[in-house]
Amino acid sequence: MTGTPSYNRFETLAWRYMRLSGVLIIPLVFGHLAIVHLINSVATIDYQWVVETRWAYLGWRLYDAFLLWFAGLHGFNGLRTVINDYVHNRTANRVLNYGAALFLILVLALGSIALIGTPIPEALANLP
């Protein structure tokens, strides 16, 4: 045989990412669930609570950022494989894949803007 065979690195990477992010998402998602559904009630959670009680601390912002990015990309990659499995028409496949990618970018951008852009209330920022 001649020449160097070319590997599809993207698919290999995507497969590895699914395994790794899957493991990471488990504690992130269950932690999130416990905080917003068990420890607190969804009825009492509002903008004020998020900004003043949670996002006052950098650690929680990072937690939410990890959840946003890992779960977002994990979900998108899963959707991509489902589309590639079931949608055989080339045009429809492309439209759906690009649509899913656009949606992902929108969600990640909105989430990231909120996480980075929301100011820390000054009174709380000075707490130990």
Binding site: N8, N84, D85
Partner: peptide
Amino acid sequence: SERLAILSEENGVWR
């Protein structure tokens, strides 16, 4: 290597 390259494609092992 040649066989693994073929199987690394989208229609290979990753499905």
